[in-house]
Amino acid sequence: MNANKCNTEAAWVDPDDAPELTDAFFKRADEFNGTRLVRRGRPKADVVRERITIRLEPDVLAQFKASGPGWQTRMNAALADWLKTHTPGDLKA
């Protein structure tokens, strides 16, 4: 079971024994626009990036990580910028 979901089984029988509807309850409640469920959270990206495994030199990785949060996005931008004037075949390992 998902840890974020509360147990929905009701231990009460009389409606007067129902738990109070608090602000926290309404904050977590599903929201509908007509009959359509409104999804919460981050919207889906237009361009989905692919997860890969890559080996980098420690000093290259350290410099990008030292630049703070968003270092992976900056590394992607640096590679995309390099590809504007080069091709991967330009480098010989």
Rank of each mutant, 00 (worst) to 15 (best):
K5S: 13
E9A: 13
A11D: 01
W12C: 04
W12Q: 11
V13D: 11
V13T: 14
D16T: 04
D16H: 01
E20P: 03
T22I: 13
D23Y: 15
F25A: 11
F26Q: 10
F26K: 02
F26C: 11
F26H: 00
K27G: 05
R28T: 09
D30W: 10
F32S: 01
N33L: 06
G34V: 06
G34E: 10
T35C: 02
T35E: 12
V38S: 01
R39P: 00
R39K: 05
R39E: 15
R40N: 13
G41T: 11
R42E: 14
P43A: 11
P43T: 08
V47H: 10
V47I: 13
V48T: 13
E50M: 05
E50T: 14
E50I: 14
R51G: 10
I54D: 02
L56G: 07
P58S: 14
V60E: 02
L61Q: 13
L61D: 06
L61R: 14
A62S: 14
Q63E: 15
K65P: 03
K65M: 14
K65G: 06
A66K: 12
S67A: 15
P69S: 08
G70N: 04
W71T: 06
T73F: 00
R74E: 10
R74K: 14
M75S: 09
M75W: 07
W82M: 02
L83G: 00
T85R: 04
H86M: 02
P88Y: 06
D90N: 09
K92W: 00
